[in-house]
């Protein structure tokens, strides 16, 4: 009898093997959209600093149909990030804290916070209060 252990290589497309892995990769991929969008917001900041014409040019770009489609996809990906982030958050907090406050209460508070913050931002924009 001789030992000859066989080591299976990690497939290049391992993440296509299981739904759980696909979902993980989708969650991680949200960062690409957020990165591009935050560069877009950075560009907006640059244009705002440059002046009124530059800012209005940036606003016009935001209304471009392609840009709107990108915004819709990015919003969906951002919400996926938000939901997974909030679901994971209590599990990362210290065990001592978790024994005092059940995970689901923490999640509920965080989701309520997301709703509240979003309502404030949209509300302020709508009222032109910025």
């Amino acid at each position: 009898m001789s030992r000859r252990p066989y080591i299976r290589p990690m497939p290049a497309n391992w993440f296509m093997e299981k739904p759980a892995y696909k979902f993980y990769m989708l969650r991680e991929a949200s960062c690409v959209f957020n990165l591009v969008y935050s560069l877009n917001l950075f560009a907006g900041l640059v244009q705002l600093v440059r002046g009124a014409d530059a800012w209005n040019g940036w606003l016009a770009v935001q209304s471009n149909a392609t840009m709107v489609v990108f915004a819709v996809i990015t919003l969906a990906m951002t919400l996926l990030h938000a939901v997974t982030f909030i679901n994971m958050a209590p599990r990362v907090s210290p065990q001592q804290l978790r024994k005092m406050i059940p995970d689901n209460i923490v999640r509920a508070v965080m989701f309520a916070g997301l709703a509240a913050v979003s309502a404030v931002i949209v509300g302020l924009a709508y009222m032109g209060a910025f």
Partner: peptide, 13 residues
């Protein structure tokens, strides 16, 4: 056991 929670609590620590 939730090993993922155990690991990530240690990242926070």
């Amino acid at each position: 056991v939730d090993p993922a929670a155990a690991i990530n609590q240690n990242k926070a620590q």
